[in-house]
């Protein structure tokens, strides 16, 4: 009986959440505050992973990150090792897969800010960057936290994409959802049961936290 896949799931979810919060912030900011040509195209593109079956994402990621794919080759040149079937590969897959779950709530939080607050900040001489860190961020903490937790639980529950690009390497890409699936397939119901029973309270606790944060903001 191994609990390592559970640890790997939590690690994947944490790394994905941290990276995605940083990457999604500028996108959400642009979508919330500016008008430009092609904005609705960008919006649709960001939400696309929501609408696509994980198999479609998985298929393209497999090609794209493979030794023959553009990104895979670039990665190999930079790091000297191949990308596919490593922890880094499933982090990249999770970033794409969870992107809408980070951007949408963040954007909503940014839009909810009282415009007068921002105008005051600009009048008082704050630059846009300073205003972002000193006015927007402190006032959207609840929304940001909700977005982070949503990304976290969504990544914990990720399955289809990882099944296609993960390769179920123990200690690297064999996360809880894959390990549970394989245990059930191999009729190891006891092992599957233990992992499921551990996963449910973790995910439930995080969802309770989201509700609480949403009510507060």
């Amino acid at each position: 009986m191994e609990l390592f896949p559970l640890y790997l799931s939590v690690k994947l979810a944490l790394v994905t959440t941290v990276l995605l919060m940083i990457m999604a912030a500028p996108v959400a900011y642009v979508l919330a505050y500016s008008e430009f040509f092609g904005k609705s195209f960008l919006e649709a593109l960001v939400s696309l992973p929501l609408a696509l079956p994980p198999t479609v994402l998985g298929f393209y990621l497999l090609i794209f990150m493979g030794p023959k794919g553009g990104f895979g080759r670039l990665w190999e040149k930079l790091t000297g090792s191949s990308l596919l079937f490593t922890f880094s590969a499933i982090v990249i897959a999770s970033l794409v897969y969870s992107l809408p779950f980070a951007v949408q709530p963040m954007r909503a939080a940014f839009q909810k800010i009282d415009q007068k607050l921002l105008e005051n900040a600009y009048v008082l001489g704050l630059s846009r960057t300073a205003a972002f860190f000193r006015v927007i961020l402190p006032n959207t903490m609840g929304g940001l936290a909700a977005s982070a937790i949503l990304v976290f639980v969504h990544t914990m529950g990720e399955f289809g994409v990882l099944l296609m690009v993960g390769g179920s390497v123990p200690g690297q890409t064999k996360v809880a959802s894959i390990a549970i699936y394989e245990a059930v397939e191999a009729l190891n119901y006891h092992e599957a049961g233990i992992m499921c029973m551990t996963l449910i309270p973790i995910s439930y606790a995080f969802l309770l936290l989201i509700n609480w944060l949403n009510r507060r903001s």
Partner: peptide, 20 residues
């Protein structure tokens, strides 16, 4: 070096797309 696929068909898919 080992990467595990769910079925023998997926093994061949990984190999023929040169993912492995």
């Amino acid at each position: 070096k080992l990467v595990f696929a769910q079925t023998i068909a997926q093994v061949f898919q990984y190999a023929s797309t040169e993912s492995v």
